[in-house]
Design a protein around this nucleic acid. Structure first.
Lengths: 180, 180
DNA sequence: TCCTTTCCGAACATGATGTCTGGAAACGAA
DNA sequence: TTCGTTTCCAGACATCATGTTCGGAAAGGA
């Protein structure tokens, strides 16, 4: 969203394309949006699109400038970016859902997450862990997301720890908040 | 991976297709795999594929039977599925990376996650939180994954809480393990 | 005003998806 | 082994999205 050139035509084209993409992403998933859709909404020629961006991904990158700004603003405490970010998202719910829900938009992640969530939910219910700091749904999603992220890190680590270690760690990290 | 029919031809075809997909997923990302790739590796005719599965997604679903089995096995404690799952993954690293890394395979999620990770890493470093229960990389990924999941839940909630509340909750959940 | 850059639309090659055909092959049951 | 049924196959096909290329028209800046 930031001006790079002095040529008004360039500015107008790029801005129209970025705005069009974000607007479309508020309505449907990113991968359901074609280049044709974008240039139609931006009212820009096909060749003009490719004159500015080599692909849809390149346009996406350019379109996320505002979010980057919010996240990289200096702050004092850990997760200091959080509150401004949450307020910002609240103002743009549809776009927020598109961006933060995007991890669900791939068939694989969708299946994995839902399998994980189901397993975790069962465990929580069975263990009578009902004194949670947030509704069961939310805690389940939190736990599944955290679990997925850690396994992912584990699989990419240069010297991966033993399953037993990692398993103990999982409990310490994820279940820490279940005992208020 | 489970027999449904008594006709050997059907069993062979379905098994070949499921195995081929998982095998390909150990090599590259799911969305980089075409139906043509699958049927080539399975050595099966194109029309045969569509006789059994309506799409690549349908085949994926059928192929995840084994994982479902591991996750839904009964157990006692919360996260009881974890250790068997981790052991299982360790035996199939490539496939594990494909499945659990899948959330990163969409351009949007990839950008969001990396922006989040960067912000969190900065915060942790600045706050001198170096006594973490796991390496900084891992904790960063854990925090980012958890944050993403909670925001996602928040945006879909029927009665979403206030940003201030959620922000407090985030700290309680995510940073709980930073004070050992 | 004048030179340069950008825009446009249309056409094109490429490659993936999903459907459909008729004949060949494999199956299970008798 | 035979026989009726089901599945498999190759290939052709329509459809749709991507990314490239072109020359002429329009808009920009100096």
């Amino acid at each position: 969203m930031v001006a790079t050139t002095s040529d008004r035509r360039v500015r107008r084209s790029q801005n129209a394309l970025q705005t069009a993409l974000l607007s479309l992403m508020s309505e449907r998933q990113y991968d359901q949006i074609t280049v044709q859709d974008v240039i139609d909404r931006a009212d820009v020629g096909r060749s003009t699109f490719y004159a500015h961006y080599s692909s849809k991904e390149a346009l996406l990158n350019a379109s996320l400038g505002e979010l980057r700004t919010v996240l990289t603003s200096p702050n004092e405490q850990p997760l200091g970016f959080s509150l401004p970010l949450l307020r910002h998202i609240e103002q743009h719910r549809a776009l927020g859902q598109a961006l933060f829900g995007s991890a669900q938009h791939t068939p694989v992640a969708q299946r994995i997450m839902s399998l994980l969530e189901e397993a975790i939910r069962q465990d929580l219910l069975q263990a009578r862990l009902t004194q949670l700091p947030l509704p069961l749904d939310g805690f389940t999603k939190y736990a599944a997301g955290a679990y997925l992220a850690i396994v992912q890190w584990w699989l990419q680590a240069a010297e991966p720890m033993q399953p037993v270690e990692l398993d103990r760690l999982m409990r310490r990290l994820i279940l820490a908040a279940t005992h208020p």
